[in-house]
Design a protein around this nucleic acid. Structure first.
Lengths: 365, 365
DNA sequence: CTGAAAGCGCTTACAG
DNA sequence: CTGAAAGCGCTTACAG
């Protein structure tokens, strides 16, 4: 019989009975709200531990109207950055006593709203959204924290992509590069636009930068098509600044396959410090977001919104949390970016080694 | 006043009042359980829609003792495979009416149990675990589905890693390869061991395969160290079969940097079809898991366990779901693996091009 | 076919 | 400082 009791979880009422007090008192003691005498409080907590008491979130949720669960919606859960986000958000939320429910919009804009709706129906108190490029989050009648870029209207917090771009540009300038190609996917991403804007700002008046849009090339040549980077090298480009490590990886392999050596012949840099950045050869110089900090701020902001909602007119308005909307990025210098060497002869050298896969690339126009 | 009512969500009681019936009947009509007359049922559902009724999961959870939330715990949420898992699990769970709460064990074995505990405290009805290499999941007194490898005790469902290995081995044999190197991380992963075992089985008596353990090399040379693959090519290896696309990527870049051309000089293959497999140059031949199917089966099994728990002695025992513990993998042939060409001269050719980063690699012993 | 009632586990004013 | 009571929204036997 004892076993039977052990099997089903103890609840407040069990503790109350065991101690001959009321559940209200037990509840107060556990939450530290209503004042309970020191000794009774201690006795209750002890008994709770003894019985292996675990509060029922469902019961609490029902009476407080708050689930202590947050939703996390990403434009594309399949994106290689998702793990970093998920890990950081989960950690920050967990520290604050919240669980994280995932929603997937599979890269589909319309599905994004449905994912958010589902999360809300599931009772999420608030939602963290890393929106799809060019999407605007509608008012969903519940707290939302948007992580995108400072230039996105309604953005809550994000890495300082623009300045990250500036720093990356400066890094390349310091290495002696004066003609670079910036590689992006498409122009409707605020994050990419900011990074690109920053790089160009750094180069303004000090060197020239041209743009390679992968998305456009793929639209005509098909996914995974060569980007024609070797030709750019022949034209004098000495560095490729990709706005994502994924594109940087693509550039590195295409260049290597074309016989261009990195960083001896050209430099390549990326963004985000994705999983492979440290292990490919050469290892990739990249610009990393401070996910921990971003997640912390997003969660703090969300929780503030949630609590303000609960406080309503009762308490004096909670002061809005002061936080920077932009969190600095960090340059991780690795092997793929190096000083400009004697590259004048490179054009010839590269063309000699060019092999089919990349040499057949049409113009990067 | 109408607005006020709209603002706070409608509940069963609102519907009941509006129609002059009892909440029990409304509940029955909505769930389709107790029999309710056709017309009343229709009227109720109509009114529910009109009022924008969204059931309260908290209320339901409290009365049924089931949260309809599942936990997803991965050894390492930072693993590049996590997005695939998360997406597939989220989808399958969502189809079955369950939400997915994420837990992160940050690659730490002990943290894995704590992550599971936290998820349970949050009320998860069951847990999907993709365990850390070499970990055994303790009985947590709640339904669990383990996704690892068929050779893991207690495994619920997984890709057929062994056979995937066999198929990959055959693919390489068909291309004419007779001497290959298999690249793995470390030997305490069942998944890796199965994949390796399969490849070796295919090669048994038909060619030779040697093993490169990245983990061991890194322990002595540091993370991201060169793997000495060019030397292996000089010794006659014509193909590298990595048990993960991450290692394949490392191999490809190291070989390319060393002046070895892929697939003209050697073939490289991977596993998992990670995000970059299709876009690097050359694109990567790999073996893909059927995540959708695996997730479906894991979720179905989990839900069966959950329902059996509820049914208890009442109903006749639910028949256990019949499912294959091993889901076939699929070979994705891309450019990185090709037929063996005249490679006799390769040894010299490669050594000529070798550059510092990889040429200084010590023995892969 | 429909409804009254109890209960899931917790919190929160309100009395004492 | 402590407790009795109501209520959060739903479900589930059990009557009618």
């Amino acid at each position: 019989m004892n076993r039977v009791l052990m099997a089903s979880r103890a609840n407040l009422s069990d503790i109350a009975k065991a101690l001959g007090v009321s559940v209200a008192t037990v509840s107060n003691a556990m939450s530290g709200k209503g004042r309970v005498s020191q000794e009774l409080g201690r006795a209750i907590r002890e008994k709770a531990k003894e019985l292996g008491y675990v509060p029922s979130l469902a019961g609490r949720a029902l009476s407080t109207g708050r689930s202590h669960v947050l939703g996390l919606v990403l434009a594309d859960i399949g994106h290689p950055l998702f793990p970093q986000f998920a890990q950081a958000i989960e950690h920050a939320a967990s520290e604050a006593g919240y669980g994280v429910l995932i929603g997937d919009s599979r890269g589909d804009v319309e599905a994004q709203s449905r994912a958010i709706d589902r999360l809300i129906e599931r009772g999420a108190d608030g939602i963290v959204v890393v929106p799809r490029h060019g999407t605007r989050i509608a008012d969903i009648g519940r707290p939302v924290a948007v992580i995108d870029s400072a230039s996105t209207p309604g953005n809550t917090v994000a890495a300082d992509h623009w300045n990250g771009g500036v720093e990356m540009g400066r890094h390349l300038l310091e290495l002696g590069h004066r003609s670079i190609a910036i590689i992006g996917l498409h122009s409707d991403s605020n994050v990419q636009n900011d990074r690109i804007g920053g790089i160009r700002e750094a180069f303004f008046g000090k060197g020239e930068s041209r743009l390679v849009w992968i998305g456009e090339m793929e639209r005509s040549l098909g996914s995974g098509c060569p980007l024609g980077l070797v030709r750019l090298v022949e034209e004098g480009v000495t560095a490729f600044a990709a706005v994502s490590d994924l594109h940087a990886l693509r550039a590195i392999t295409e260049l290597q396959q074309g016989g261009v050596s990195i960083p001896a012949d050209v430099s390549v840099t990326g963004f985000d410090d994705l999983i492979w950045a440290g292990v490919i050869a050469p290892s990739l110089t990249t610009m990393r977001m401070n996910m921990e900090r971003i997640a912390e701020i997003a969660i703090a902001d969300l929780i503030w919104q949630i609590e303000r909602l609960n406080a309503a007119e009762t308490a004096p308005a909670l002061p809005a949390p002061r936080h920077p909307g932009r969190v600095p990025m960090q340059l991780i210098m690795r092997q793929s970016s190096g000083p400009v060497l004697g590259r004048s002869a490179l054009g010839d050298r590269a063309s000699v080694h060019v092999r089919s896969a990349s040499s057949t690339a049409t113009d990067p126009a």
